[in-house]
Nucleic acid binder design. Structure first.
Length: 483
RNA sequence: GCCUCCAUUGUCUAGAGGCCUAGGACGCCGCCCUCUCAAGGCGGAAACAUGGGUUCGAAUCCCAUUGGGGGUGCCA
């Protein structure tokens, strides 16, 4: 049995889209699962779309995700080069071979006149299909134009009758009428191969056994097979992947805001969570397990469990999954990652980050939401004293007016300002005032935080704030309460 | 328009003719825990798009309808 070889073949046109990350992931998982090779190939045949630095983004993203390619532009391999623009000279001879075999032909029609005919056809509500005009040119005429240096493209000569079909691993048997096949361009006027052509040539030359890619190629695959057959090459296994959607009718795209890997990372998502979640949109292990390390994914992965209906990317579930990863993080690691986010609000303030981290870890879904949750520590929000009311805690403004002044001397009298000391001292005092815990702790927490819900209770917050600020805030509360 | 693919709760999905009075997860709701919010524990509501077949029996097979996706480029 030949070794499995898969490939991820992105175009360096910008950032790494999450759909692309998922495609790369499935290719990687399958190759590793089968003990095969995962190849990275850069498809930059469209020079107009080339974006500086985009290749590096691809490298960095794949690396960050732990998808290490066995062969590629930077690491090399036996089938290089792995950048299509560097392979440019290699494609034309293959196209010429096809011409010789009658499977392809030179076409001298200009882009402009084709565009015109295309829009005219569209205006009539018809599908434009190249009419094989240049296929009827005589050998002499072709040679004359070639010699005269008339610009040309090379087109595939598709059959017009019958049916083309193939078997896809996820979609099963797929058939298309040949009458719909358009004679696609193989070599562009600039001498560069089209994606359609370079892709087939390279997949074959690089020994790709399984082609895993987006389902937008589902309908052009018969034409690729025509190419393989014309050359007498073995057709690879096709595994077409469904689209990752934003909602039922739109795919996840940059226009929707955040579809790039980097967007999610800068928002404070963990790569592991993102990968884990992405793996599950369109694939499932057949068990109830939903948390996977990369190694576990490799172990569980099975192309036969790939889904054939599009999946919506549910950020809410991603958030939950991310929060689970955050919760399981090592405390030191969490502190390290949270610190920059703490700093956004608390830089320069004398706050115990370690303790804050302990309180925040179970309350963090994505890191970018930390600042809003801890802002009150930096600055007491303006609040309505109505929030001193809490039915369940039997607290209201008058209870606050009564209890807060009592608290002041008690807090002042605490020796070392530790959470334990604050807790013990206040808990001892509460019964002596004839109050319920909630009647003291609710007003206290409201007074020092200025908000109804906080990460942590009164003792934790008082500790973080420090004695001075705690007392000051209680003073502010008493003023607000008119005392 | 033409070609083609898809169709289970709001979402990701399990389900490959009887195991389904449809399972799991997110979200939602309730309860417990609790000085709030989280976390955690427990419980609940929520789906086989529609219509025809096939079959003793259909979420599972076939057809149509509807809805949605993709393709229809000298883009990839």
């Amino acid at each position: 049995m030949t070794q499995v070889r898969t490939r991820f073949a992105p175009s360096p046109t910008g950032f790494m889209h999450l759909g692309g990350v998922r495609t790369a992931l499935y290719n990687y998982l399958f190759a590793k699962k089968m003990g095969g090779k995962f190849i990275l190939r850069i498809e930059d045949t469209d020079q107009e779309r080339f974006v500086e630095g985009a290749t590096e983004v691809i490298y960095d993203t794949l690396k960050a995700c732990g998808m290490n390619w066995d062969e590629g532009p930077d690491v090399g391999g036996d089938y290089g080069p792995y950048v299509q623009s560097e392979r440019k000279s290699l494609y034309l001879p293959y196209a010429q071979e096809l011409v010789k075999k009658g499977a392809a032909y030179y076409c001298f029609c200009t882009k402009e006149e084709l565009d015109e005919r295309r829009s005219a056809a569209e205006a009539r509500g018809e599908v434009f299909k190249y009419d094989k005009h240049c296929l009827r040119l005589s050998q002499e005429e072709i040679q004359r134009k070639l010699d005269a240096g008339v610009p040309y493209v090379i087109r595939l000569n598709c059959p017009t009758e019958g049916e083309s079909s193939y078997d896809d691993v996820v979609f099963g048997h797929i058939a298309f009428p040949n009458s719909d096949l358009d004679d696609m361009v193989l070599i562009k006027q600039d001498g560069m191969p089209t994606y359609n052509f370079a892709n087939v040539i390279d997949d074959h030359l690089m020994g790709i056994t399984h082609v895993m890619r987006g389902m937008e190629y589902l309908s052009s695959t018969p034409k690729y097979n025509l190419l393989y057959n014309a050359f007498g090459w073995e057709i690879p296994q096709y595994i077409h992947l469904t689209t990752v959607m934003r909602d039922a009718q739109h795919k996840l795209s940059k226009r929707d805001g955040d579809a790039y890997y980097s967007d999610f990372i800068s928002k404070g998502y963990l790569t592991e969570a993102l990968i884990n979640y992405l793996a599950l949109v369109g694939w499932n292990p057949g068990t109830d397990q939903e948390f996977f390390t990369m190694d576990e994914l490799i172990d569980a992965f099975d192309i036969h469990r790939l889904n054939n209906s599009p999946g919506i990317f549910d950020v809410t579930k991603l958030d939950w999954m991310n929060s689970q990863y955050v919760a399981r993080m090592d405390a030191d690691k969490y502190l390290e990652m949270a610190k920059p986010w703490f700093d956004r609000e608390l830089a320069g303030k004398n706050i115990d980050y370690r303790r804050l981290a302990e309180l925040m870890q179970s309350r963090t879904d994505i890191f970018s939401r930390i600042p809003e949750k801890i802002r009150f520590l930096a600055e007491l929000p303006d609040y309505d004293t109505a929030i001193f009311f809490n039915k369940k805690q039997k607290s209201d403004e008058s209870v606050a007016r009564e209890v807060l002044p009592l608290l002041l001397p008690v807090l002042e009298g605490i020796g070392e300002w530790t959470e334990q000391n604050i807790h013990d001292t206040v808990m001892v005092a509460i019964p002596t005032w004839g109050k319920k815990n909630g009647q003291v702790l609710w007003p206290m927490r409201i007074a020092i935080s200025g908000q109804e819900s906080t990460p942590g209770g009164a003792f934790e917050i008082a500790y973080l704030l420090g004695r001075e600020e705690t007392l000051r805030r209680i003073g502010v509360a008493l003023e607000k309460l008119g005392r």
